[in-house]
Structure formats: C-alpha cells, structure tokens
Design a protein around this nucleic acid. Structure first.
Lengths: 319, 319
DNA sequence: CTGTTAGCGCTTTCAA
DNA sequence: TTGAAAGCGCTAACAG
C-alpha cells in the first residue's frame, strides 16, 4: 500500500497523494501495527524486557529510570516485570518476554543458585545482562557494585577508629550482596588481625522491623558493640530506629546507644539527616541502570559480537 | 500445525505425538510468537501501557507496583514509559503504545491543559485511566487522591493549634495537585476567618534543593512563619533540610526554626525518622495503582461498558 | 510513482 | 486425529 510508503518517509510518493494519506491517517487516528511490523523478517520488536525483584524498592526504581533513559535513546521501550524475589516467577516472566520477542533482557536475578532459564541457550540467543547480583556458573554479562570492596573499606575505617566490637547487620533476601558484603567485612577484620565476633552477626532480618529488633538485641547484650556495619539500607533504617528509641527512653542500654558508630551500605534519602551519626557506602543506582542497559545494547547492536561474558564492578564511595 | 494444538492445551492430539512435540519444544527452546499471535482476529496483545512523569520518584514506583500486581493478576504485562513531565514526550509514548496495540493505558498526565492525544477518539477506542492528576475537559476515568480535603484538614489542624502565620510550599511540576492542595489550604483559612499571608506562599520550587532554598528564605523573614504546610514530599524534604541546617548552625533565625511546626502532604520512606517534628497527610500510592488498574480492567473487560467517565477521589489520613 | 505478490508466525475453519 | 487453506497487518521486491 502507498500508505506504508508515506508512513515510512514518504519517498517516491506524489506530494498530493502523500498529503491525502496524511490527512486520512490523522482523521482516522490510524496507527500502524508495530506487532505486525516486527513480524516481517529483519525487523525487531523494539522491546527490552526488564525483570526486577521488587519494583517498589526506590533503589530499583532508580535503576529502572537509568535503563529507561538508555532504552529511549535507542528507540526501544521497556517491558517491566516484578519477580518478587521468586525464581519461578522470574522464569515465567523471562519466558513470556521471549515470547514477545524482546531484543534483550535485563534481570536482577532472584536466586544465586542454578538458574537454567537464564542460560544462553534457554534464551534462544537473546542477550541478557544481570544487574546487582550474579548467578553462579552463568556465563552472562553482569554488572555489580563493588560490594566486597565497599564493605572492606567501611569496616577498615571502623577498625582504624579503634573499634574492636563491630556488629554486622545483613538481610536474607539479597543473599548474594549480603554474602559479598559480609565477605568484605570479614576480610577487613582479617587484614587487621581482629577476630569477627559471632554474637555480633545478625543476618536473618529482611525488613526494617526485623532489623530494628536485631539492633535492639545487640544493644541489650552484656557487652554491646561499639560500632555497627549494616549491609543495606533496610537494616540501616532499622538500626537507626532502634538506636533512637533506646536513646529517647533512658535506661540500661542508653550509654551504649549514645556513642554507637553506624556505617551503612546503600544510601537513602535523608541519610544525611539521620539523627544517629552515620557514614554511608554510596553508589548511584541510576548509573547502574545506565551501565547495564548500555552493555545490553552493545550486545544487541553487535558491537561486542562474540566476546565472552563481561563482568563489571562499579565503584562505590564513602560518604 | 499440530504444534499449535499442543501448545494451546493439547486437545485432540495423539498422546504420543503430543509428547514428541513437547520434547522438541523443550529441546529447541521454542517460544511461540506472541506478536504474531495477537495479530489474529479476536486476539489481544496482553499489554498495558503505563506513562509516568517520573519513574524515579518513589511515589510512582509504588504506584507502578500496584499496577503491575493487578495487571499480572489479569495475565497482562506492562510497558512503562517516562514522560519526564513533558506533554510532547507523553504524546509520543501514547502513540507508540497504541501502535503496539496495548489494551489499555494508564497515564499520569504531564499537563493539565488541553491534551488532545488523550481524548477518546485519538485513542481509537483504547480505554485510558488517569492517575494522580486530572486533565481539563477530558472525558476519561480519573483517580485522584483527596488533595483538597487533605490540605484542608491539615491546615485546619494547624489553625486550631493557634498558628496564624502558616507558610505554603508547593511545586511547579505537578501544577494540578499543587493547585488543589493550595485550594484546601486556602479554604481552611477562609473557614477559620484567617487571611492567607502572601509573603509566606512559595510555589516555584520543583525539587528538593529549590525547596530548601525557599524554606531558608522563609526563615530569614523579619516575621517568619510559625508553621509550614508543604504540598508534596519533595518540598517537605527540602524544608526539613533547611530547618535542620539552621538549627545546627545557631544564628539569627535559629529560634524560629526551633519551634517551627511542619505538616507535609505525601509520606515518604523514613518520614518518621525526620529530625524535625512532622505530621503527614498520608495515602498509599500502591493502592492508587491498584485502584487505577482495576478501573482500567473494568473497561477492558467491558464490565462497565458505555458508562460515563468515572471520577474517584481516594481518601487520605493524617499521621 | 503506484499497485501486486508474497510471506513473516499464528490459529480458525474446513477437509481428509 | 491430522493437514491444508486462508488471512490477521505489514513491507521488500518486483512489475507496471
């Protein structure tokens, strides 16, 4: 049809006819069907699939923004799915996205264990980039942040300040980052020749409330910690709540709470307004999103054709 | 093809053949093409288009989560676009989404002015629900929160407490909600027989930094306000920053900052950790998302076929 | 400059 | 129970 020609540039169409078509298109509210279009050989869907473990987490919202930015710059749209930290749901999302012929996938993997559905051949050649977390034995582009290094630096700083009883607050959900951050925590102790104190390690909490409880327990210990390293912002917030509540209600543990030193991984709005003195291992999740998307487009555009999986760790900064 | 039959239930296929097909599908990593599928008459795309003014705003991230929840429950996926508060970009996104044959649209409109591209006939019959903000003269389902009522209640409370010099911080971007919240602010004053004080109104700020600056100016006034009503969480955060900084650096305005009463619209993570005593007009954006999506599906499923545009205001609560 | 043909992957209808 | 035909909307290739 001549319409097709007009819609794709209007080359080789009599101006008069072109105008007539354009008027008709406007009048009828015609939109050419992109799905049918992408069916033709050589055409792509213009879609990128994004699987996030928890969209409501501002951290991932920021990341999504970074991804969207880059995708838009490449004239692509994003399909966003929420895996709720559930590997099965993640698998369904990925399968569905493949069915919709996404040109690439960005996944925050829910599990670190074997994730067959993310392997190159399960994806029928669709490139994938993992964000935030890696998956064992999976040959895929991966962008992490420097969890180990950040935790190492933070812990080292605490040790340098003279702290010898440093607590660790980690969470259950992001096993992967939690493990890596604990690793940095431990390595710093080793490098300093200081023992990690088992009774000060708390890794079961997965939300602010449980983190608050864990922190209260730590403060109630006979020999409470003098500093706390918190592996993510949920735990940091919980810790702040606990410390504040103990401070406000003078009692047995108030003294320990008063001079407690707090160091947290991941920033959050108001980190700088914290009532408890606080240092932060910070990085920009939007930047992570941009980075991840850029790497994906390098695969899609074939710029890095056939290169082995790339593994990037973004730097963090202490604040 | 027999494959098609197997994939859609496997009815009327010899078990042996079915198994053979299933094995082949697994081996080849075959995924049926949803785009081609949706081309057939009677089939739908399974896609919902979501246009948000700013994905990075945790408020809308929460809303997106609510939408995603409901969409998933209806076996649909969401295409998410960021309009950056730009009506032209919004229009492009909507056009693109229509081209992809979304079954419905959820839009946080960037403008309140004439938005032809959201009118029923520009949408070629695709249902749309507006979230958070309304558009003048547009006959579309709209879900707002009770901006006027919330601002009215909050302001009334401040007046009841005896405040007579109440500042108003509003922002430029969300003209719509800003206007409505100012309306509630003004109505409360009128109902109380108290004059709104022009020099205490600041509505130009559009981010945390400019809000902080505006608050600093207010504190530096010869006769500073004794209370502040902030129309959104960006402004609230800026105000807190300003108040804190003035408090921490004792000076001429410290006294005013010390006893300032703050009331903000929209909650935000860690609002309860604010170093400045704070009351909040709160509501759950995820709920807004669910509500909006549910209304959209009522249109899609034809449950409310032909009914006139519905206009809903979700209640808020004071915290 | 314009229209026809063909086929992208799918499923409904009809025949075998 | 299975296959063949036809057509969803689109555009490259080829007439005209």
């Amino acid at each position: 049809m001549t319409v097709s020609r007009v819609l794709s540039g209007g080359k080789n169409v009599r101006p008069e006819v072109r105008e007539r078509v354009e008027r008709a298109v406007a009048a009828l509210g015609y939109h050419r069907n992109e799905n049918a279009r992408s069916l033709r050989p050589g055409h792509r869907s213009g879609l990128i699939g994004v699987v996030i473990t928890n969209i409501a987490n501002p951290y991932y919202a920021d990341m999504q923004q970074g991804i969207e930015e880059v995708a838009t710059a490449h004239s692509r749209r994003i399909l966003v799915g929420n895996s709720r930290e559930d590997v099965d749901l993640e698998q369904q999302l990925v399968a569905d996205f493949i069915g919709r012929r996404v040109e690439g996938l960005i996944v925050v993997p829910a599990g670190t264990g074997p994730s067959e559905h993310l392997s190159a051949d399960a994806l029928s050649g669709i490139p994938v980039v993992l964000a935030s977390r890696a998956v064992d034995d999976l040959a895929a582009d991966t962008v992490l942040i420097d969890d180990v290094g950040g935790a190492f630096q933070a812990t080292t700083l605490l040790l340098k300040e003279g702290h010898r009883r440093i607590a660790f607050l980690g969470n259950r959900n992001s096993l992967f980052t939690g493990r890596r951050r604990y690793q940095g925590f431990r390595q710093a102790h080793e490098a300093y020749g200081v023992e990690v104190i088992p009774e000060l390690l708390r890794t079961g909490q997965q939300d602010v409330d449980s983190a608050e409880k864990a922190m209260l327990e730590l403060l109630a210990l006979e020999d409470p910690p003098t500093a706390v390293f918190s592996a993510n912002n949920r735990n940091t917030v919980g810790a702040i709540r606990a410390i504040e509540s103990v401070r406000r209600q003078p009692g047995a543990h108030t003294a320990a709470a008063q001079k407690l030193r707090l160091f947290g991984f991941d920033s959050f709005e108001f980190a700088d307004l914290s009532p408890v003195p606080l240092s932060i291992v910070a990085h920009d999740p939007r930047d992570l999103g941009r980075q991840v998307a850029s790497m994906l487009f390098e695969r899609i555009d074939g710029t890095v054709e056939g290169s082995p999986p790339r593994y990037v760790e973004l730097p963090v900064s202490l604040e």
